[in-house]
């Protein structure tokens, strides 16, 4: 387990939901956990919207605005964001903005992300139009590598259709990610799934499952 996990990927791939889940889960095993919300590309659905929940759980959250004024932000980064990256005792999840343009912000922190304490994961959703083919997935992750100058260490299959997701979506995404993995030599680290499906998927032979729950999405969207 590396101390710093950077979560990048195509926009709308589900990075934020996964980042929040990962931070909440890491907190169960580690004393000091931080979530770094580096999304300076998008004004909605960012992990900072769950600031109170994360802080109540004992997770420190860092982002590019001050206080709770979530909309008063600039596409710029404050130096305070380096604190968890430099703290050797702090297990840190870095939630990055979407696409190569959203991931560009990683560049200025490259020295933290290039060391052996860190791994960069790329989230892939085979139900998004731009990443619904093996080639589309490769193009997406290569563009992030090119833009940031960082090497992706692992793939995370997050193939879903929100509340309409079934086990078949996860398996479809897994097969595509394994093909991507075979072609470019980057391992598939996790298959994200609803907690409810985890047992069924395990029985179906799906390995490296990461069961998640929904933290970011308001309930009324899915009646």
């Amino acid at each position: 387990m590396k101390r710093i996990t950077v979560i990048a990927g195509h926009f709308g791939s589900g990075k934020t939901e996964f980042s929040v889940n990962l931070a909440m889960d890491l907190k169960k095993e580690h004393e000091k956990v931080a979530l770094l919300d580096l999304d300076i590309a998008n004004p909605y659905f960012r992990s900072r919207e769950r600031q109170k929940m994360l802080e109540d759980a004992g997770i420190k959250i860092y982002y590019n605005t001050f206080g709770y004024d979530i909309t008063e932000d600039l596409p710029a980064i404050s130096a305070v964001l380096r604190a968890p990256l430099e703290d050797k005792d702090c297990v840190t999840v870095v939630d990055v903005g979407g696409n190569d343009s959203g991931a560009r912000v990683l560049k200025q922190f490259a020295k933290y992300f290039k060391n052996e304490d860190c791994r960069l994961l790329c989230v892939l959703n085979a139900n998004r139009p731009e990443t619904d083919t093996v080639q589309g997935m490769i193009t997406s992750l290569r563009s992030i590598e090119e833009e940031t100058g960082l090497k992706i260490d692992g793939l995370v299959n997050n193939t879903h259709l929100l509340m309409e997701t079934g086990p078949d979506d996860v398996l479809k995404g897994r097969d595509m990610c394994l093909e991507v993995s075979g072609k470019i030599g980057i391992p598939l680290v996790w298959n994200i799934c609803w907690k409810e499906y985890a047992d069924d998927l395990a029985k179906a032979g799906c390995e490296n499952l990461y069961p998640v729950r929904i933290y970011m999405r308001p309930t009324w969207l899915d009646l």
């Binding site: 709308g12 959703n125 139900n127 139009p129 309409e164």
Partner: peptide, 9 residues
């Protein structure tokens, strides 16, 4: 086919 899309897209 059903795809996951952001509203604006």
């Amino acid at each position: 086919e059903k795809k996951l899309m952001k509203g604006n897209e």
